[in-house]
Amino acid sequence: MLIDPRGPRFAAGVTAIVLVLVLVFESGWLALAQAAVFALSALSPRYSPYGLVYRAALAPRLGRPSELEPAQPVRFAQLVGLVFTLVAAVGFLAGQDVLGLVFAGLALVAAFLNAVFGLCLGCEAYLAFRRLTHRPMAARVPAP
């Protein structure tokens, strides 16, 4: 499956805003809600709530992307985000605010880098793993 790379960047921007709110309010419940979004997105980009908003509201106004990217690295990145936000949620809900702050902060850094600079840390980790296991894949392909 190939996807428009602008969708995950939009989702990362929304995620960054949510994670700032998680940090400001030290909210385990909001971190848990973001973890649910990550879980749906890790299943498939089709199920991503933020991706649905992007495809319905923004993509028609932007036109076709110049290139597409494979969905597997993005799905892996969403899985990593799920783990980090679950740890943050458990930390906040268990009264271990430092744990929650650290993991929500790390997730925020990753979301910010993707939203602002297009640097998806989880995607890069996935591609590096593929290279290390001698199963490289193309990161992007021209759009039809």
Rank of each mutant, 00 (worst) to 15 (best):
1 M>A: 14
3 I>M: 12
6 R>S: 13
7 G>K: 12
7 G>R: 07
8 P>G: 11
8 P>M: 05
9 R>D: 14
9 R>G: 14
9 R>F: 11
9 R>H: 11
12 A>P: 08
13 G>D: 03
13 G>R: 02
14 V>H: 01
14 V>Y: 02
15 T>I: 07
16 A>V: 05
19 L>F: 09
20 V>E: 02
20 V>Q: 01
20 V>S: 03
21 L>A: 13
22 V>C: 09
28 G>M: 01
28 G>Q: 03
30 L>S: 12
30 L>M: 15
32 L>I: 00
33 A>Q: 07
33 A>N: 03
34 Q>Y: 08
34 Q>S: 13
35 A>Y: 05
37 V>T: 14
39 A>V: 13
40 L>Y: 13
40 L>W: 12
40 L>I: 08
40 L>G: 15
41 S>G: 15
41 S>N: 09
42 A>Y: 06
43 L>A: 14
44 S>Q: 03
44 S>K: 06
47 Y>F: 14
49 P>T: 10
49 P>Y: 10
50 Y>V: 09
50 Y>R: 09
51 G>Q: 14
51 G>C: 13
53 V>Y: 05
54 Y>D: 06
54 Y>F: 14
55 R>C: 06
56 A>I: 02
56 A>G: 06
56 A>R: 15
59 A>P: 00
59 A>C: 00
60 P>W: 05
61 R>W: 04
61 R>D: 01
62 L>H: 06
62 L>F: 10
63 G>H: 07
63 G>E: 04
66 S>D: 15
66 S>Q: 13
67 E>H: 14
67 E>T: 04
68 L>N: 07
70 P>M: 04
70 P>Q: 11
72 Q>R: 12
72 Q>H: 06
72 Q>G: 00
74 V>Y: 09
75 R>F: 02
76 F>P: 00
80 V>W: 03
83 V>R: 12
85 T>N: 15
87 V>G: 10
87 V>R: 12
88 A>H: 07
89 A>V: 05
89 A>K: 09
91 G>P: 05
92 F>P: 02
96 Q>S: 03
97 D>Y: 04
99 L>S: 02
101 L>T: 12
106 L>W: 08
107 A>H: 05
107 A>R: 04
109 V>Y: 09
111 A>Y: 00
114 N>E: 13
116 V>I: 10
119 L>S: 10
119 L>H: 13
121 L>Y: 08
121 L>F: 13
123 C>N: 01
124 E>V: 05
124 E>Q: 11
124 E>M: 08
130 R>T: 01
131 R>L: 11
132 L>S: 12
132 L>G: 13
134 H>E: 14
135 R>E: 07
137 M>L: 14
137 M>Q: 14
139 A>F: 02
140 R>L: 08
140 R>I: 07
140 R>E: 12
141 V>S: 06
142 P>M: 01
142 P>T: 03
144 P>I: 05
144 P>D: 06
